[in-house]
Write a protein that binds this DNA or RNA. Structure first.
Length: 836
DNA sequence: GAGCACTGC
């Protein structure tokens, strides 16, 4: 039997071979090529005086790259390599698994893993036997020699951290970056799955005015198709527009394409999103958010400057994409020169095709890795606890790779994170470290950023996220996805005007998308915390499109301003409930945006210019009359972002509440916002001030952007600037003019309110400053159904104002009658005027 | 006396 030292070396060299030999060889060849290239470039630079600046820069870059690569090669020769795994690591895991410290759902394992687990346990027992008989060394040797590198999962230990010194890591990163650049952009483009179909694709677009492209993610469609079209000459008479449902996507794709085309962003290739326009007269490939293209249509109904419109990610069915699709379907019959491309996921292509008059479907395969899906045998009673134990099962039994756990909201995520960290403390150093990271929209930006930090060697990262990680944000290095199978969905009831955020089963499309997050860089695994039966029988096939479950008022106004008069017969892919449309139209009429014939009025025209809900837009028009435009712009901007304005960390609730109380205005929350804004302005928009006062910096900054935009739009629609900071009566009257249908009156019990319009029983939200005062008449900006029916953003009004400002809605006599005579529903007694 | 999935103009 060989001595131990040699055994260790043997093992490590074996492992090194399997992992690094080919890498080293590849690098050697690459280095030689690079040396040659740099030499040739140097020669060229010396002899050719007509080189462009770009070429010279490229040469310089290549020289730096070579330098780095040679440094790296030197370090490699001097550093000792080793991927030895201390057996204690295995021992601990085996013990853990053997004793089954972690209870969990009956997770289906791969058979190899099962085999490995059994082996580990028996080996561990054997080793202990050896230890007891005093043959420790033999035991160790024995253990290392039976270790089979081909079947056992590759565990790494803390010692990896000591092997890689920071300097080497830094160089490695730089080298990786440089390597990416060596691979010329053209090469990358050619490697995309879509490249093979380039000619066919161009031909298809030439032959068909509408084309559905069904392509999987990572096929390169968003970046390549506009470039192919440009090469095919479609930019000669017009511009190519490519819509994205999200701002960041529009911006990053535009940046990428401008690099591929070797042009400066904002010239030939640009993007347009709200608050940020980087496009100009030369722009021929323009990425924009779907909402932005819709807004452009209100200025130019035929989109005359565009020759091609690409609706990207149409399968996500965002509100704007759906409306655009309907408008464009119409537009192509008028503009025969316009090409329309709808890009969607494979599953929905058929639906899009039949909607667009049986347009042909062009399929492009993607470049995704395989994700193995696992279901639970039985439905899980509590997805929160089973998701936690599943995470631990993966952590203790599976190969390297980070875990992504989908839960429904902030509360669950915080609870899960606390519980997992507690368990981690109990296990201590018997398992490798598990870093828990949280990810949800309301999380402050610096906390969010922690998810994207690379996982240190010897650690595993567990990201607990909401839907935000499904499409909006991508975490690298995920190999395992755990999905609770539920989502929070906003449901709007057009009859009552109430919103509710409900936990509902996620759709099959959604859970598949989530599972796909495990297969971005290598093969992955997805663990669904529901049974296969539920998957097919309880999960809806697709998420209900946004247009089916939102307030239609804003949509009505937009469509009317585009000259669509018959909304009920407007050819949308999925038609919203007629009730919702009727309610939307009615509101527009109440606000004076539509006349009795349902035509857009002058007021309505002005309102449609403002990127706001109709009620908020109406406030600004009224504010001019009351001479408080400046104040109302601030308030409306803050209200539109109010949901996550005040921060309330769990551990500092008392401090936060105290800080927020300072801003409270006795007339109501709307004036509280005004106070917050004024102090923020006085602090010169300071981040520190926000921290001290528990205000979300990100949110208030967005409100600042909205405010600036509204200011300039108000000027454009001809509103006279005015300000009167102390006249709180005028401010509230202006607000009432917009939120007119949202008035409520205190009921006899002195607790609840009754909405004047629908007679619903509602309550002031406990976060409101008017919670204790409970004035007789209040107005709110929205109704939310949580544990109770709550009014949010409440302010006090005088009952007299209702008939003064909204005589068509409220008659003074009615209001008085309501107080004295009208009976409550269900015979609960009379509504009295309290305090009298 | 209590919660806020995610976008977008």
């Amino acid at each position: 039997m060989p001595p131990k030292r040699e055994a260790t070396d043997d093992l490590s060299s074996l492992r090194q071979k399997s992992r690094y030999d080919y890498l080293a060889k590849r690098e050697e060849v690459k280095l030689a090529e690079l040396r040659q290239q740099v030499q040739e470039e140097a020669e060229e630079e010396r002899t050719n005086p007509t080189l462009s600046k770009r070429e010279l820069e490229q040469f310089a870059r290549n020289r730096t790259t070579l330098q780095l690569a040679e440094d790296r090669a030197r370090i490699d020769q001097t550093s000792s390599s080793g991927f030895f795994i201390p057996d204690s690591q295995f021992d601990d895991k085996a013990e853990l698994l053997h004793k089954k410290h972690i209870p969990g759902p009956n997770l289906p394992h791969t058979s190899e893993f099962q085999q490995w687990e059994d082996d580990q346990i028996s080996r561990s027992l054997a080793k202990n036997r050896h230890a007891r008989t005093g043959t420790t060394r033999e035991a160790e040797d024995d253990y290392e020699f039976v270790f089979d590198t081909t079947t056992a999962p590759q565990w790494t230990s803390d010692s990896d951290g000591q092997i890689l010194d920071p300097e080497k890591q830094r160089l490695q990163t730089q080298l990786d970056e440089a390597e990416l650049k060596i691979k010329t952009i053209d090469e990358t483009r050619r490697a995309l799955p879509i490249f093979k179909y380039k000619e066919e694709l161009i031909a298809a677009i030439r032959d068909h005015q509408i084309l559905i492209i069904s392509a999987e993610t990572a096929s390169g469609k968003s970046t390549q198709i506009p470039q192919y079209l440009k090469e095919a000459g479609y930019t000669a008479q017009g511009c190519i527009a490519c819509t994205q449902p999200r701002r960041v996507a529009a911006m990053s794709v535009a940046k990428r394409v401008s690099e591929e085309c070797h042009v400066r962003l904002g010239r030939d290739v640009g993007y347009t999103v709200r608050f940020d326009d980087r496009s100009g007269p030369d722009t021929v490939i323009k990425y924009l958010t779907d909402g932005m293209l819709l807004r452009e249509m209100t200025h130019d109904v035929t989109l005359s400057r565009y020759s091609v419109i690409i609706l990207d990610e149409a399968h996500e069915r965002s509100l704007s994409t759906d409306i655009l699709a309907a408008l464009l379907k119409d537009l192509v019959t008028v503009r025969s020169d316009l090409r329309l491309i709808i890009s969607s996921a494979t599953l929905d292509a058929k639906k899009f095709s039949s909607y667009f008059r049986d347009a042909p479907v062009f399929s492009v395969p993607g470049r995704r890795f395989n994700v193995q899906k696992y279901f639970t045998a039985q439905p899980e009673a509590n997805y929160l606890t089973s998701s936690i134990s599943t995470a631990y099962q993966i952590h203790l039994s599976q190969d390297k790779g980070d875990i992504l756990l989908f839960l429904t909201g902030e509360e669950e995520i915080e609870a899960a994170a606390t519980s997992i960290e507690e368990t981690a403390r109990k296990i201590g150093n018997r398992a490798q470290e598990l870093q828990v990271r949280k990810l949800y929209g309301a999380l402050p930006a610096d906390e969010q950023a922690k998810c994207f930090e690379p996982t240190p060697p010897g650690c595993r990262k567990l990201v607990i996220a909401t839907n935000i990680a499904e499409t909006s944000l991508t975490v690298d290095g995920i190999r395992y996805v755990i999905d609770c199978g539920y989502t929070k969905e906003n449901q709007y009831n057009p009859r009552t005007g109430m919103e509710a955020l409900c936990v509902v089963p996620a759709s099959r499309a959604s859970v598949n998308q989530r599972a796909g997050r495990a297969g971005r860089q290598s093969d992955g695994m997805a663990f669904f915390l529901f049974s296969k039966h539920s998957y097919w029988n309880e999960l809806p096939e697709n998420t209900v499109p946004e247009i089916m479950r939102v307030n239609m008022a804003s949509v009505c106004l937009t469509l009317k301003s585009l000259g669509i008069n018959d909304l009920l017969n407007f050819d949308l892919m999925d038609k919203p409930p007629p009730e919702a449309l009727a309610q939307g139209l009615e509101l527009c009429y109440t606000l004076g945006a539509l006349n009795q014939e349902g035509q857009l009025t002058k007021v309505g025209r002005s309102m449609s210019v403002l990127p706001l809900e109709p009620m908020s837009a109406r406030v600004l028009l009224a504010a001019e009359k009351f001479g408080v435009l400046d104040e109302c712009i601030t308030i409306i901007a803050m209200v539109s972002e109010s949901a996550s304005l005040f921060m309330r960390p769990k551990d500092k609730k008392v401090h936060a509440d105290a800080a927020h109380k300072r801003f409270a205005a006795k007339e109501g929350d709307m004036l509280t916002y005004l106070n917050v804004w004024r102090e923020f302005e006085d602090s010169e928009y300071s981040n520190l001030w926000c921290k001290e006062n528990f205000i979300q910096y990100r949110t208030i900054n967005r409100a600042r952007d909205v405010r600036t935009q509204l200011e300039s739009l108000c000027e454009r629609i001809g509103l006279e600037p005015s300000s009167n900071p102390t006249d709180h009566i005028a401010i509230r009257k202006a607000l009432l003019s917009g939120f007119l249908p949202n008035a409520a009156r205190l009921q006899r019990d002195g607790q609840s309110y009754r909405t004047l319009k629908n007679g619903l029983t509602v309550y002031i939200h406990p976060s409101s400053g008017l919670m204790e005062a409970r004035p007789r008449f209040v107005v709110y900006s929205e109704l939310v159904l949580t544990s109770k029916e709550y009014m949010r953003n409440v302010f006090e009004i005088d009952g007299q104002w209702l008939s003064e400002i909204g005589p068509m809605l409220y008659k003074q006599s009615d209001i008085e009658k309501l107080g004295l005579e009208k009976k409550m529903p269900k015979g609960q007694g009379k509504v009295g005027i309290d305090g009298q």
